[in-house]
Design a protein around this nucleic acid. Structure first.
Lengths: 242, 242
DNA sequence: CAGTGGTCTAGACCACATA
DNA sequence: ATGTGGTCTAGACCACTGT
């Protein structure tokens, strides 16, 4: 996040020095969560910079969740009651290729259907309206890794079914055709359905990590996907660094 | 030069208007990923604001991952190849209370032990060094929701075992005693161990969502926790909004 | 009222990339 | 040489909170 540039002399940019100083003191426990920290004016005096520079440092620290600022009151050390982390859900093709492995997709279904009532509701369609449906199994070095059951709003991506999904993943198609505005997902552990177990080549009793993702663009819902991964073959990882 | 008046009572802040405008255009697909967007100077002219204001809007959009800026080159629409989302792992107590339910913790273990070699390695200790170990089951309205098996580095939180874990969660204790600098976690689906199944009151064949979290502070590793949740009772949710 | 943060200006100098 | 973004200044007015 911080560009490692050294603008004037050999010293770091003033706003970076301020950030680092406050980060250090916070890490050292200099201020307890909720406790008042130096005001803008005090930091201006202490570091001999203009207020805009102090403001920038403090705003970035706030964006990182380390401090809280309240207008008319002051700046405070954040109470890190909740640990938030950046969770990346990368395109599976990229992920597999990044590991140096071979990715293959088997398309079991790619057709137009009429939306059930429940599905129409979640995709913002009328019940019985046409909807695109794909069912694809992704393999890493020949081993089934994900069963991707996806419904797509035809209004968001009219040409969705024209693609060869053995060559390009639905995720990539949709990112190109329909700009993303919002995504919601849930992650759970459950047993696969009979069909999913068969497609993945696993026993029905084997736990799976299931990600359900729903995305929307400027024009409404885009897609609803159920991604089923064999528990023994897949792991989501994340990291949190202030 | 004319006297300046800012009609801010009726209109949103200029930097917000610029952000929103660019967000809208990006969402509309105005620029393809990687394509050049207006330069700082063009936006200054277009919106009739000073450059600092444009800079702020663009820097925040970059922090949100929507655009990329390259010194000496220009500003570009980001290629959203990866969908990143903020995943919150809240303290379980807070989460349950927020749902208006009752939280109860049953402490099955809270003691000092000697670290095994594997554990010592992950906590930055010498093999056989003392380590704190707690095993706690958390219940929501009397139903077991999480089995928390946790090891703590005594150097990071010397008084860890002095707390009454039926009254305060280990997470809260550690957030108070040891400032957090970094957290890594993994999420997977698997079957519980025999002990975990018994503690959670579930069948051994029931899938569980397992979060393994490792945190570190300024002075090194703090804790290693294995959080096991019955798949039918727990769901991780997240959201991504540019 | 005084003190706080929120925002903005109209310049300026710099580092970097490209031609 | 030109145009780009990166950073900074020395002010200013505003909105808000507390006494």
């Amino acid at each position: 996040m911080d560009p490692l540039v050294f603008p004037r002399s050999a010293a770091a940019a003033p706003y970076l020095r301020i950030k680092q100083h406050l980060r250090d003191e916070l890490g050292r426990g200099r201020w307890r969560p909720g406790q008042a920290m130096p005001s803008d004016a005090e930091l201006v005096a202490q570091f001999g910079v203009s207020r805009m520079t102090v403001t920038r440092a403090l705003n970035e620290l706030r964006a990182e969740g380390l401090i809280e600022r309240v207008q008319g009151v002051g700046t405070f050390a954040a109470h890190l009651g909740r640990v938030a982390a950046q969770l990346q859900i990368r395109d599976l093709h990229e992920e597999i290729v990044a590991r140096g492995h071979a990715h293959r997709a088997v398309v079991h279904l790619a057709q137009r259907e009429k939306a059930s009532e429940a599905l129409a509701d979640r995709l913002g369609l009328a019940s019985g309206a046409p909807v695109f449906h794909t069912l694809i199994v992704h393999l890493e070095n020949g081993v089934p890794l994900q069963c991707e059951d996806r419904y797509v709003n035809p209004a968001a991506a009219p040409n969705y079914l024209d693609h060869d999904f053995t060559q390009i993943t639905p995720t990539q198609v949709l990112l190109q055709e329909a700009p993303l505005r919002e995504a919601r997902y849930s992650i759970e552990a459950a047993l696969p359905t009979a069909q999913e177990a068969k497609l993945l080549g696993i026993a029905r009793g084997e736990p799976c990590l299931i990600v359900v993702r729903r995305t929307a663009g400027a024009m409404g819902p885009i897609t609803l996907a159920r991604l089923v991964h064999p528990g023994t073959r897949y792991l989501l990882q994340g990291e949190f660094k202030p």
